[in-house]
Design a protein around this nucleic acid. Structure first.
Lengths: 240, 240
DNA sequence: CGACACCTTGAAGAGGTTCAAGAAATGTGG
DNA sequence: CCACATTTCTTGAACCTCTTCAAGGTGTCG
């Protein structure tokens, strides 16, 4: 844990349309300010929490970008998700009072620490917050269903296309371009998430460039043919 | 929705060690009886809820066996899970107030209908119930992480082995044999869940039989070499 | 008993992996 | 600020696992 911590409020957070405060009244919002005890800085490459660590809090990402990974004894390593500003991480820890994956910052980040017992306590008082927490967890379940579909039935091109479209959509909701993005992760991390080897990810990027669907310069991606990209994901002809 | 419904109580349910009542006091338990409005029978092959349907309740499985599947416009069909007695389904519906997958009974089943607003209401009064609901959702998230690992980094044999071990472990927790089980689903459904074609599932079963790891007669499976099966899942040598 | 769904097995083929080498970017320390 | 080490990315060629297509077998239910 990093010592750098700052006390701040949800009520004037610029992420309140995305994060916890969604759908709360002014009065409830101020009550929510008791939720975030501290903010917490996480340097690029360091872990916010790791497998086996005691679970105490959920974290709302204020700035930065994370990956969560699952490591097994036999050396496998699966990236289970990439998280950006306004998203909540740590939900995996609730069941067994300890985390079951690692959360690693892919760029310098800042998170709001929300002690979970506090969340439950305030949730009992503010119905909207209680329901919102349930929605956040349900959303994560539904997201993972989508990843299962991707991993279970899509080919490499479809996987990468779906991945990029998902990132673009989430970035767009945060005010970024719909057609341009900077990847925060390596080809290997993308591959791990998509169930592919890094070489396959690289080759698939090259293929997309050949087909003039996008420009790729290292981690900088610019979409040239968004329709073509979308067609890749929703095309019966490509199913096997 | 089926008309056959019966009013019953959690407090004398034989699944109370597995299902919702876990960790509640006697008094709290009786309060829980207000949760389950009705029971509901679902015939084999029929759906408990389906994609797009309005979400109103979670369902606790009392008897029977379900699958949940995700269908896409382009004709893909991904089985996202198999659920048995004592498990809760319907969590996917919370985010958008409508279900995002289909739940289909693989054998005649009976579920307890728990209206979700009622769950939230009672959750505000009984801390243990509130926390238990959170745990159930977190458990589902962690389970799905495991499936992502399976789909993202395991080979066919490992996937099927992991799948069988998981089923056996859950059945064992319900008092069934550790070494014998009857599959409730087809090869195709197993394949869909594991990201494999039905032929591959069938061939992998045959391979296990050849290696004397198990006996397989249609849907009846008897484990002969449990260690061998476990070794398949946790073996660094088999990773790619 | 016959129709239908489900399962098994074979042979050929495709998609992705593995191994290998080199190029490009990034970071570090003098 | 540059030289060097390191990490990351790209590309090729051979290989392997799983899929596809096909045919036949087994089990089940009206």
């Amino acid at each position: 844990m990093h010592p750098q911590t700052i006390k701040v409020a949800c009520s004037n957070c610029n992420l309140r349309e995305l994060c916890m405060p969604i759908g709360l009244s002014e009065e409830e919002l101020s009550r929510l300010d008791d939720l975030v005890v501290v903010r917490h800085k996480v340097k690029r490459g360091s872990t916010l929490f790791s497998n086996g660590e005691k679970f105490t809090a959920l974290y709302a990402i204020r700035t930065g970008f994370f990956k969560t990974t699952l490591a097994t004894e036999d050396g496998r390593d699966q990236v289970t998700g990439f998280q950006m500003a306004g998203e909540i991480i740590g939900l995996d820890g609730i069941v067994n009072d300890k985390h079951s994956c690692d959360a690693i910052a892919l760029e310098d980040a800042e998170v709001c620490v929300m002690p979970f017992d506090r969340i439950e306590e305030i949730g009992r008082e503010i119905n909207a917050l209680q329901h919102h927490v349930h929605k956040i967890m349900s959303r994560e379940i539904v997201r993972e269903h989508g990843v299962m579909l991707l991993l279970g039935s899509m080919r490499a091109e479809e996987r990468l296309a779906a991945f990029l479209l998902n990132l673009l959509q989430r970035l767009h909701a945060r005010g970024f371009s719909k057609s341009e993005l900077v990847l925060r992760m390596t080809r290997e991390e993308i591959g791990s998430y998509l169930g592919l080897k890094l070489e396959t990810v690289s080759r698939t990027f090259s293929k997309f460039v050949d087909e003039e669907i996008m420009e790729v310069k290292q981690r900088h991606v610019r979409i040239l043919n968004a329709e073509g990209l979308e067609r890749l994901v929703n095309n019966p002809a490509h199913c096997h």
